[in-house]
Design a protein around this nucleic acid. Sequence first.
DNA 1: TCTGGGGTCCTAGGACCC
DNA 2: TCTGGGGTCCTAGGACCC
Length: 441
Amino acid sequence: MRAHASLLHLDLDAFFAAVEQRDKPSLRGKPVVVGGVGSRGVVATASYEARKYGVRSAMSTREARSRCPHAAFLTGRFHAYREASTAVMTLLRSVSPLVEPLSLDEAFIDLEQAGLPDLEVPTVTAFAEELRGRVSEVTRGLTASVGLGTSKFIAKVASDLDKPDGLVVVPPGTEAELLRPMHVTVIPGVGPATAERLRRAGIHTVLDLEAVGLDELVRLVGKAHGTGLFHLARAEDDRAVVPEREAKSVSVEGTYDTDLTDRRLMEGLLTRQAGEVAERLRKHGLSGRTVSIKVRLHDFTTLSRSSTLHSPTDSTATIARLARGLLTDLDTSGGVRLLGVGVSGLADWIQEDLFGETTDEAEEPPEVVEPPSIRRSTWAPGMDVEHAEMGRGWVWGAGRGVVTVRFETAESPAGPVRSYPEDDPQLSAWRPPVTEDEQAG
DNA sequence: TCTGGGGTCCTAGGACCC
DNA sequence: TCTGGGGTCCTAGGACCC
């Protein structure tokens, strides 16, 4: 903990939604929700107008729609968000060499190397106020909330106290009195599970937490977490601002609108995801030794399996083969809502073999498969033998590499639903309905 | 059809080595 | 028959963050 409030936390207000409102004037002053718009989507960001209706981040889009049906529901334009974020981070780095981005819309800055004449409260306050103005300039009108304090923890708490478009400085020496009345969840790392454990022990506020001994806390929440809480409850935090963090893993996952049951389809999707992971590894000059898959079952239980190679890889073929192999282990008969592939144990080099060649098989770049342009209600004769006998298939949905088909059977016009990878060769057999003209001809 | 996606860190148990 | 530690690596799961 420092003698001066020289740590700054900056947080762009309702970031994704604010970018949308900036770029589309008709959305200004109106509720805007950015997030997944599918049946299993969740809210990433809600504008302040939408928050008035109780719409919150991480809420299901379904729930958000019921709370605020007239909001604009947008899927997100990450290029625009990244561009705005880069402008802000570039500005921050021009102001101090010690900038630690936490996400697209948040960063810590250490003002000790920002070249200020001193670090007294009036000086850092004026600096922060000017910085907020410049953020608004480089983003063409976005607002930021800023907190200043003697540690990362305090700066972050401070930036939250006057959102949106606010500035709060916590003067050195006043940290404990600020924190004591607050709920324990103000402490980073205290989420629902930890809060519940603490609640059962009669600990609700930071003041309560301060009264608990180190041994007792470790017994309650474990060694690392317990010692962390012990110190943060006393506003003791000397974590440094770390400008560059190396990635430790790269992963891709997807949640599907309908649960998957077809193993072949799952293998196809893992293969596609392996390709995306490998491409990102190569793009960043990385390779990794441990390949993992993640499988979320219909009932939301989440399984993971991993396998570690002797030397790192960035090869699509290797990652895909391992990922598919890891799946064979698992019982997915009840249906799968999410599949994912990841690589960890990263190295910024690729193992070379005895001949000085890389171990990466000289592979073709993954084939880019365009989603088939299938219209709703396209007839799908001869999709496969089983379904051809059933009769007509109707495209029920397409996206995320999956085409879902509802089949009409003799018993029911809305028969079983089956899903296929969009690059499934069987899909190429699809053709529009045979018209009466054609039949006549 | 309640519950995203991309991450980080921690824990606990087992294997293995000295 | 009864019995050591410590350290590292790997795996699976869970909590948490934005």
